[in-house]
């Protein structure tokens, strides 16, 4: 495959986060620059790049159970522009929650976009616990022993231009058990509350907008 024909698109507004880290891992094998979705201005230029790429890999965070609004805006603009003819599309979505089902919608959305606009959907990778990584290497992931080889296999599919099955990411991650879930809930809440208190706020107070209205 011509290396320059792969478009690696980061759909996170955070340029040093987990979405970028995953693309850089792919980049190490396939080459090509990582393109960042601009948060302002027209998306026209980016649609042109998508039309010209042979393969598009989109990596983004999970916001409220699917990709962020700006990526949906790009997909809507691309659908309106048309001009696709069999471009291979792979997707990656990473979310904070340690589950797959909470982030899965993102990949379904990309698959539907591909099917409705003459691109060729090649599968993707759903990654839980992405917030804990916060851009750190995949080797720091909670399920590193299974996630690292699975993601590297996913990269090999991209490099070879072959479809990547969902069992690859499904089998690599298992949700925390009952006790760990309780530990997580307590620990994460403690950390969130600590940060809120550090900034001089009461985590248990009514929402700021409600207090403003009183």
């Amino acid at each position: 495959m011509d290396k320059s024909e792969i478009m690696l698109l980061c759909a996170s507004p955070r340029r040093k986060g987990t979405s970028t880290m995953l693309l850089e891992r792919i980049q190490a094998v396939t080459g090509s620059e990582v393109v960042f979705l601009p948060q302002k201005d027209s998306l026209h230029e980016l649609v042109l790049v998508m039309q010209q790429a042979a393969t598009i890999v989109i990596s983004g965070p999970c916001y409220i159970n699917t990709y962020p609004a700006r990526l949906i805006e790009l997909l809507e603009a691309a659908a309106l522009a048309g001009g696709f003819s069999g471009q291979k599309l792979y997707g990656i979505i990473n979310g904070g929650m340690p589950y797959i089902h909470t982030h899965q919608h993102g990949l379904t959305c990309l698959q539907l976009f591909a099917e409705q606009n003459h691109l060729s959907w090649q599968g993707g990778f759903v990654l839980g616990c992405g917030a804990m990584l916060d851009g750190k290497p995949l080797e720091k992931h909670m399920n590193r022993k299974t996630v690292v080889p699975a993601f590297d296999q996913f990269i090999r599919h991209i490099a070879a231009g072959t479809p990547s099955p969902s069992c690859l990411y499904e089998q690599a991650q298992s949700p925390p058990g009952k006790i760990m879930t309780q530990v997580f809930a307590k620990l994460l809440t403690f950390l969130v509350e600590k940060s809120i208190k550090k900034h001089g706020h009461d985590p248990k107070a009514a929402n700021w907008y409600l207090r403003e209205q009183e």
Binding site: I64, T66, P68, A69, R70, I72, E73, L75, E76, H105, T108, C109, L110, L112, F113, Q116
Partner: peptide
């Protein structure tokens, strides 16, 4: 219904 989800206006 946009790609099985909501439009970007709503997603924002």
């Amino acid at each position: 219904v946009v790609f099985g989800g909501v439009s970007y206006h709503i997603k924002k």
